[in-house]
């Protein structure tokens, strides 16, 4: 019962945030919405796994939590530099600090 409540709340929240991703005036609003939806999806996977009695979903959620951040950073970097590789000439590469 409580898993159903949590699942319903998470799905409703995803719908609301999806509306922001649809409206979002700037690209950063959309990235923010995508990142938040990713985190909500992690919670949804965990609760859904409990709801149908298959906690194996947690492994998927773990991987998804890591990929979510990586994808956000990759998208931001792409919009900043226009490429995912070495930003030639746009920003000096970080100097090797002495460790």
């Amino acid at each position: 019962m409580m898993f159903i409540a949590a699942t319903a709340a998470l799905i409703l929240a995803i719908a609301l945030v999806l509306a922001r991703a649809w409206m979002g005036p700037t690209v950063y609003d959309r990235v923010l919405a995508a990142n938040t939806i990713g985190t909500l999806a992690v919670g949804l996977m965990a609760t859904h796994g409990f709801l149908i009695g298959r906690p194996e979903f947690l492994d998927v959620a773990l991987v998804y939590a890591l990929l979510n951040v990586l994808s956000t950073l990759a998208i931001l970097k792409f919009f900043r530099f226009g490429s995912l590789g070495d930003p030639e000439g746009i920003e000096p590469p970080p100097t090797e600090t002495s460790r």
Binding site: A6, A9, A13, L32, T36, L40, G43
Partner: peptide, 17 residues
């Protein structure tokens, strides 16, 4: 805990809108 989390989640989604 789950109800509080659901409440905060919904409130945050509402705030994003």
């Amino acid at each position: 805990l789950i109800l509080a989390g659901s409440f905060f989640t919904l409130a945050g989604a509402f705030g994003i809108i």
